[in-house]
Amino acid sequence: MAASCWRPGVDPAILRLRAELLARIRAFFATRGVLEVDTPALSVAAIGDPHLASFATVYSGPGSRYGRTLYLHTSPEFPMKRLLAAGSGCIYQIARVFRDGEAGRLHNPEFTLLEWYRVGFDHRRLMDEVTELATELLGGRVSLAEPERLSYRAAFQHHLDLDPHRATVAELAVCAERFGVPIPPGMPADETDPWLDLLLTHRIEPRLGVGRLTFLYDYPASQAALARLRPGDPPVGERFELYLDGIELANGFHELGDAGEQRRRFEAENAARRARGLPEMPLDEHLLAALAAGLPDCAGVALGFDRLAMLAAGKQSLAEVLTFPFERA
């Protein structure tokens, strides 16, 4: 190991930029009456999404003589919804979150999320506020044209001439070949979502947010995650993602408040985990009880703070804006 490895990977200007962005975020929410909160990073429950891997650790001590498995949160979503159900009103949090298996130019296994919830907002109104915050934080550093909103369907139609809600696996494979997207071995024959993810990551995402904020919204129902579904033909998940320079910056939902539907989704996620040979995750019964007690109609969004700082600094990789990237942590 080189003798200089103890040193931070960033220069002092980046430290100041991060501090300034955090201060401006806090000022932004203070003027809007959104309350800063702090929730636990460790929980007996964990997210079930088969594409997210939670770090697990063991607590031993008073109350747990033989050790109890606890999971580090991948986002502070569940306890923040419990606060909302308890009547907190609009809240935000700047949280350190943890995701196993994710490392690369735009991924670090631990990173900082800005997550906030607005009571009475739907996903469209929240997109307005995300635009205001992002413009305030990036303005003056990055020149931004008028923001753009594209439905998930419109993005696929525009970039790939394909309807993502109706395309079959065979049609998605033909589309991948036509646009020169290498097809990974072992792609499923009975599930379209991994094919949509393949096309999205290879052909669409790099073309989103070029010189402007671009929102993708109204996702396929199968990708609704924790968003509510809007009935229609087809029904869509009221979910959005924000892109700038081809980089995904934020994910938001018009939040699902139906406890029964949420339990069914959690159980479907664990079924998908079983099918892939992944460990099942303990359901968050506290969240389900909170939803049953009544979540106010709200929209919430999680924004990757480090990626935002990276774009504000004009850098190309997260490692350039993290004090100590994973390899040297």
């Binding site: 594409h51 690369g104 991924h107 990974p184 979502d193 949509l196 993810d197 290879h202 995904e248």
Partner: peptide
């Protein structure tokens, strides 16, 4: 390069 959509399959 590790790529992953906001939610979903990583490649």
């Amino acid at each position: 390069e590790f790529v992953k959509p906001g939610k979903g399959q990583a490649f």
